[in-house]
Amino acid sequence: MARVVSISSRFRDLTGGLDGLDVDARSVRELVRMLEARFPGLGALVEGEMALAIDGEIHQDALMEPLGPHSEVVLIPRISGG
C-alpha cells in the first residue's frame, strides 16, 4: 500500500478533510486512476496540477513512475521557476 499524503489544501477539499490515505497502486498512473475513482476530481488534479515527492524525490509528469509496496507519495504543488 502506498501512503499518499499532501500539503495541498485542495487535497483536503476533495477528500472531505483527509490529510492522507493508503492506495494499493503500483505506479503513478494506477494511483491517479484510483484517486479519481475514490474522490472525483482528485485524480485529474494530481495529474494536471501536482508534482509528486515519491519516497522523498520530486517528480513532475511522472505517470510511468513505479511505486513500491511501502512508497510514500507526497502531493505537492508543481514547481517551476523564473
Binding site: I7, A53, G56, E57, I58, V74, I76
Partner: peptide
Amino acid sequence: AKTVYGATVR
C-alpha cells in the same frame, strides 16, 4: 531530513 513540502533532502 524531511522538508515541510514532502521531499527528502538529498
